[in-house]
Design a protein around this nucleic acid. Sequence first.
RNA 1: GGACGCUUAGCUCAGCUGGUUCAGAGCGCCGCCCUUACAAGGCGGAGGUCGUAGGUUCGAUCCCUACAGCGUCCA
Length: 901
Amino acid sequence: MSELPKAYNPQDVEDRWYRYWESNGLFNAEVNRNKKPYTIVIPPPNVTGMLTMGHVLNNTIQDILIRWKRMQGYEACWIPGTDHAGIATQNAVERALSKEGLNRHDLGREKFIQRVWEWKETYGGVIIQQLRKLGVSCDWRRERFTMDEGLSEAVKEVFVRMFDKGLIYRGKYIVNWCPFHQTALSDDEVDYSESNGHLWHIRYPIEGSSEHAVVATTRPETMLGDTAIAVHPKDERYKKLIGKTAILPLVGRKIPIIADEFVDMTFGSGMVKVTPAHDPNDFLLGQRHHLPQINIFDETAHLNESVPKRYEGLDRFECRKRVVQDLEAGGFLVKTELHVHNVGTCYRCHTVIEPYLSDQWFVKMKPLAAPALRVVHNGKVRFHPQRWEKVYEHWMTNIRDWCISRQIWWGHRIPVYYTPDGTFTAARSEEEARKKLGIAADVPLRQDEDVLDTWFSSWLWPFSTLGWPKDSEDLRYFNPTDTLVTGPDIIFFWVARMIMANMEFMRGEPRLDGKPRKNEEDVVPFRDVYFTSIIRDAQGRKMSKSLGNSPDPLEVINEYGADALRFTIAYLAPLGQDVFFSVEKCEIGRNFANKIWNAGRFLLMNKTEILGSNAGELDLTTLPVEHLDLADRWILSRLHHAIRDYDRALTGFHLNETTKVLYDFIWHDFCDWYVELVKTRFYGDEPQEVKRVVVTRALWIFDQALRMLHPVMPFVTEELWQHLTDRKGQALIRTQFPAANERWIDPKTEADMEFVQNVINAIRNIRGENNIAPSKEISVQVRSDNSVLETYGSYLRKLARVASIRQIGSGEKPKLASSAIVNGTEIYVPLEGLIDVEVERARLQKEIARLAASVENIQKKLANPNFVDRAPREVVQKEQEKLSNFEASLEKLRRNLEQLA
RNA sequence: GGACGCUUAGCUCAGCUGGUUCAGAGCGCCGCCCUUACAAGGCGGAGGUCGUAGGUUCGAUCCCUACAGCGUCCA
């Protein structure tokens, strides 16, 4: 075996192990009736996307969970894949085309789609390769893409079934229209932000009268499509106007003045203009009053031929200016106010959304929502942190129908077929459509031009990736999946809808035992949902491409290593809190990796030293229990503590707590104390046989630590684990995870060790305060009734650089010494000629002040009869013990201070 | 306007069910040290009346109420 380099270099290690794991099938999962499955489906990233810090966090968490469960003996299956990101991908390809001076219509639908597939083949693999760099242990054989044949089957099947059930319908409604993409968007694809605008007050003359109506609007150009004015029926100011006719300025159209309770009497003048084709509220109002709907825009939000010639062809914002000018010139503009209002923009291109009347397809959500709401209420699906349940509940109880059609080409084409006379049906194929419509093979049939919202395929992900609509062992075994890890920002887009879809379509499908699923726990898509933090930069801004504040994770991995990035991000990510990330913070992880590396290096050096040439055959499968000393029993107690805490933390999805447990155990307990203590045995004059046992045990404990750390830092742990001994083809990734054994957790041992540690700390403090060089050895005198120090005084030699310890009698005491009291034990460091009396006095005074304050506090407490009577007896007793201990220590400290010359 | 979250050391944050020196960690800072695993390190040290005001309790960083500031989502 070759010597390990002095510093850990991840680049020498990571790719090599990733290749090994993958090519040996160590990520793979198969149906195994002897094991419990543990399944995660990846939130599919956009196929043409690049890895972001958000992906890093999300996938690190998934990998930690999946590796942990795998090592615990579950059949751990992590299904990866990507989605086709309809609008985003089409957009990217159209941009590329425009560089060639082409648009999609030049190519035609078929050729264009082919172009997108080519694009996908070229750039689609990037994010998947990037994920590998992070070390994720997905079963790559199971990789899926939402436009795959199988998944497209699922989409079609779902659409047709829902159509037949009346859960999908078509209608002319106001939708959110993106004039840039020229497509409808669903409600949650619109971002709202406050914007400074104006409120224009416009005068509409009333026919046959000198009176006029004044309406206020933030969008004056829409007046060209007005078909009414509305007032509140109870509004005394305007009652007399109801039923009269107003003349629309600039247009001359006669429009009625109607009454509707919807009108807000307090807003503006209390009269509103009604534009049914360009405002969702006006649309509903228009339906109630059977008003005409005049659409004044084309798909690009330019004015169409329904408006006076002088406005035709103008862009909507250009038109706004022109209309305001003309209103003013005509004397119709009463006043203009500044006004802050919410403006909706496209979540992809940030173009202002236009409410637009068009034919679209919708999913009826109410019937799906009820069961989905129930399983979250009754805990069949648990959210972490739980508070997201409220958000979910609010959305689910106020749910609106989902607009699923998109006027683009890249996506699943809507499986609806029309005959020339306009009748239509949904079908899995043209033949089926003909059958359903009852028409002959020669009647021309036209398929709907639109495609489906990308989320219409992602909401099927937990079962479509497992082969549905085909039945399979995989589907029966791995669905319901176990944990979903995703961001709260897509709780509506995705999480809620997956619950709905899985419950709707998995009901009745066979379980592993062959019986049809009907219980809620069999039809939910997953049991736990972990909502990740949002990654922000050091200033707290969301990371985004446009701000340029998002580090490239690949560069971070190159600089610090994937393990360092993984550890750091998990360490920084508390459950439910945002993460403020900056690249330099990866030093936490890098330094930790290096620390572990060097601990391993140290152990291996001593292994070779002590065991000699046959060290490679060392058996590390069982813990050697011979020659246990305090440090051994202590570290084993700490180890099992750590395992238990780790288990609790991770079970509760406290990722940061999990990493802290690892960090504290490995760095502080193992490296700072245990390794230092075994040095006393390695370098001491113990028999060779004892040294052999001690080094083997240290390696065994380190082996356990590597297992625990592996899910978080897979690369460095696998590399070291392989170095510890000849593994005969075994790999850490598939090794049993440590289980906490309460038998090893021993409070007495921990208390004894803590006492020794405190004594060492006290001596170190004396050394530090008195500026004694680490190289200078000192002698110590103690007065103690604690036998631990007698037995394990040798621990002080190495850790406090103590040359000799002498027990002293009651009267005895060095003349000039620095002193400390630890749990009643008096410690004296004679420092003839070295001690600065002033420094020492200050030290003691500080300690006295601290203790005196504590004593006073406890005295006050114990003097309070309420406390003594009402607090639990153990608490009171503990306080009393504390008091007498502190008082005794205080007494000794004061005497030492007095006697200081 | 409604819902939720946050406020702890100079900075970034832990503190999961009220009581163990519970007031912590990392970074930064100060001092000493290249002690034969690690200077990406070791040892020591300074730094906080836990946002404010009340309340519950024998006891509050922790539970309740109000307020202030910041943030997110929804309307």
